[in-house]
Design a binder for these strands. Sequence first.
DNA 1: TCTATTGTATGCATATATTCATACAGTGCG
DNA 2: CGCACTGTATGAATATATGCATACAATAGA
Lengths: 141, 141
Amino acid sequence: MHTIEDEVLSALNLRRDGVPIYVQIREQILALIAAGRLPAGARMPTMRQVAVALRVDLNTVRHAYDDLQNLGAVVLRRGLGSFVTERVGPADGAPATPDPVDPLDPLARRVLAEVREAGLDPLAVAERLVRLATSRKGDEP
Amino acid sequence: MHTIEDEVLSALNLRRDGVPIYVQIREQILALIAAGRLPAGARMPTMRQVAVALRVDLNTVRHAYDDLQNLGAVVLRRGLGSFVTERVGPADGAPATPDPVDPLDPLARRVLAEVREAGLDPLAVAERLVRLATSRKGDEP
DNA sequence: TCTATTGTATGCATATATTCATACAGTGCG
DNA sequence: CGCACTGTATGAATATATGCATACAATAGA
């Protein structure tokens, strides 16, 4: 069987485009959380597990995990492991989920910002996205 | 009036998320080229212009521009300036545009990869993108 | 209590990123 | 030619990222 931790481990992969390793780990885990693939309360892969899987140093993974904790995305507990926070963000006086927010909202918003930054039409990109998604079905076995 | 260079300059902006400055410049310019906002043959902003606009060092901008040249995206000419390459990529024996490729294809493909990496449904993201785009019209004045 | 697991921490070495200052080398133009 | 502009280059200084080794501290469970 595969646990959530294993799923996360296999989802992580590093590029060589100049982006620091710890930033890549941080962003990828944030994306997994935003996607609901790492639900609130879920146990994260061990720092050492990630270090071994990605073949990077323990301190490098820690850098990423520290960032995640400072962002309020996870909580680190010595001797226990790391766990996804119940709700991301400061969470002040806002009531529980005023609007049934889509779990893919964060990613969608990021994409929207990126599209606008590039000066493109979001609708056109969405259309293109649909065409690409429906045409190339068998990409990753 | 505003030239293409000025448009590019105002489109560039830096984050403070740990991603190296030269990588941010490189990726943002690549996005502008992919979006057609920097057409083939167009003159790029001067390295010094970018350095002043972003308040970074000339060598940092050069790092980005060097990467862009190594990627084949631009050509640097001493005394003249930097210019967008006619066609991005090695361009071997492939005939001219076998399929009328969308100018937003690169971005769309990147988004698709990101969505799949996050374990989300591309169609759902596309829908969400449309809803976000159509609901919040007045974001950037 | 003992032990394995896990986060926390330190010191040293190396590589890269960034800034600052300065200079050199093509290019077009008056 | 001489000048202004633009890419190219170098050296020193500082900060950060990464790896490697090692150790400490808290937790759960046998």
